[in-house]
Lab assay of single mutants.
Amino acid sequence: SRHTFEINGERWTVEGVSEELKEILRAAERASNDEAERLLRLALKLI
């Protein structure tokens, strides 16, 4: 499935992501810059 999210003013669209990964991306959208970066690094390990 496709998911579009915005982090630090940048929009991203990813396809074929699991519900778990979507949850991480949604958390990154709400997080501070440092926390968002940490969550994105974690998410990339899952891809």
Rank of each mutant, 00 (worst) to 15 (best):
L42V: 05
R30A: 11
R11T: 15
I24Y: 04
R30K: 13
G16Q: 07
D34F: 08
N8K: 03
D34I: 11
H3M: 14
R11M: 15
L39H: 01
A28P: 00
L44Y: 04
E23D: 12
S32C: 09
E29N: 03
A43T: 01
S18H: 05
E35V: 09
G9F: 03
S1V: 13
L21A: 14
E29S: 11
L21R: 00
V17M: 08
S18N: 10
T4M: 10
N8W: 05
L21N: 01
L25M: 07
L42R: 04
N8I: 03
R26P: 00
A36W: 05
H3K: 04
I47Q: 03
E23Q: 12
D34V: 11
T13Q: 07
E29Q: 08
E15N: 07
E29L: 06
L25R: 00
H3P: 06
A36Y: 05
T13L: 11
L39F: 04
L46H: 07
F5H: 03
R30G: 11
H3V: 12
R41M: 10
H3W: 14
I24H: 02
A36F: 05
R11S: 14
L40Q: 01
I24F: 04
T4C: 15
E37L: 14
S1K: 11
S18C: 15
K45Y: 14
L40A: 02
R30W: 06
K45S: 15
R38P: 02
R11Y: 15
S32I: 08
V14H: 01
I47V: 06
E19W: 06
E37M: 11
D34T: 12
R38A: 12
L21G: 02
A28N: 01
R41F: 07
E15L: 08
N8P: 01
G9V: 01
A43Y: 09
G9S: 02
I7W: 03
E20T: 09
K45C: 13
I47H: 04
E23W: 07
K22Q: 12
E37S: 09
R41E: 13
R2I: 13
E20D: 09
E19V: 07
N8Q: 05
W12F: 14
E37N: 10
R30V: 10
R41T: 12
K22A: 13
N8F: 10
S1E: 14
R11Q: 15
N33E: 14
H3C: 14
E19M: 06
L46I: 14
A36D: 01
S1R: 11
L46N: 04
A27S: 09
A36V: 07
A43N: 01
A31S: 10
A31V: 06
R38K: 09
A27H: 08
T4E: 12
E6V: 14
K45P: 05
E35H: 05
N33M: 12
A27L: 11
R11H: 13
T4F: 11
N8C: 14
W12S: 00
I47C: 12
L44E: 05
E10L: 10
D34Y: 09
E35F: 05
G9D: 03
R11E: 13
H3G: 06
L46Q: 08
R38D: 08
E19G: 07
E37D: 12
G16M: 09
E15I: 15
I7N: 01
A27Q: 12
E10F: 08
I7T: 02
L44V: 11
E20G: 08
E15W: 13
R26H: 13
L25E: 00
E19I: 07
T13C: 13
L44H: 06
E29G: 06
I47Y: 06
T4Q: 10
E37W: 09
E19T: 07
R2C: 15
L40D: 00
E19A: 08
W12Q: 01
E10V: 15
E23Y: 07
A36Q: 10
R38I: 10
R38F: 10
V14E: 01
L39D: 00
L46R: 04
G9M: 03
E6N: 06
E35P: 02
E37P: 01
H3I: 14
L21K: 00
L21S: 03
F5T: 03
S32F: 08
E15G: 05
D34M: 09
E35I: 07
E37K: 09
G16A: 10
E20Q: 11
E15Y: 13
T4H: 14
L21Q: 03
E29T: 08
A27M: 13
K45V: 13
A43W: 04
S1M: 13
A27I: 07
K22N: 09
R2L: 14
A28M: 07
E37F: 09
E10T: 12
E6L: 14
L21V: 15
S1H: 13
L21M: 08
L39M: 04
W12E: 00
A31R: 03
A31Q: 03
R38M: 10
E29W: 02
E35C: 08
A31T: 05
K22S: 09
K45N: 14
D34A: 13
L39Q: 01
A43I: 10
R2S: 13
E23A: 13
R2Y: 13
R26I: 10
V14P: 01
